[in-house]
Amino acid sequence: MGHKAMPTGSVRQRCGRYTVWALLLITGLVVVVPSSFTAQPKREANSFAPPSWYDRTVQHECVLGTDYLGRSYAAVLGRAISATTRVAFFGTAAVLFGVLAVGTLQGSTQSKLLGAILASGNLGVMAVPQVAVLITIATSWSRTSPAWMVNTSMMAVLVLFAIPTGARLIAERVRSVNQTRFVAASQAFGASWWYTFRRDVFPHLLEDIAWIVASVLPMFVAVEVGLAYLGIEYREFEGLGRALAKSFGSIFNGIAQFQLVVTIAVILWVALIPQIILKLLNVRGFAEESV
């Protein structure tokens, strides 16, 4: 609403808000740009060249050298970032949606059954079945099945297993906010459930949401990278994991070593984007002051 931008004491908030938009824009560019501006690196037929600084397709040296198929590694990396972050962002969004839905449901109803499911899903031992299911899925798809189906099925598993932790957090918060007097007051003047949730409960969930995003996104990146490195990967999907695995493949080559270091740095950056945003914004203060 317009009056939120009143001059009183809002300078800092406005800065905070602009920083958020700027960072989201940058992150969005990271996802979108590589796929639209770097062309699919041309693959020279049957050439299985060792990495070198000289790119034969463009006939001059390129920044990060070429990979094992003679493609410019910069372009490969760009596409890999794009692919991985897209998966990670979609996955995070799905987890967030699931967490909010389940958490709010549990927080408002305090259902015993749902509580038990969440609690068991929250146990540390669930990591073992999770990996087992993932490996089963990754290996059971036939080679001809489309890439998106493989990816979606794996993501669905990841999402399902990631929901309980966050959902418990959200449920607890929703429960405590629901007990406050201002929620009672808005219910008393006839506000609908959705209205109360949007105006009164949701602002109190922001920190938890930020926390969930910051921990789930790296998880998706790590799982993608880890599985690809272990050889459980889908051939058509050229994410960061594949790039890492391939540069490990020719580890005794100096150029490949350099590429390896760059890849690891890129992976860390992608995984830590939300953490960095949170740090920059000092999210706790941000949520209290400007929301």
Partner: peptide, 9 residues
């Protein structure tokens, strides 16, 4: 303390 939502003006 909690008669008003502390996250809103």
């Amino acid at each position: 303390r909690e008669s008003l939502n502390d996250r809103r003006r």
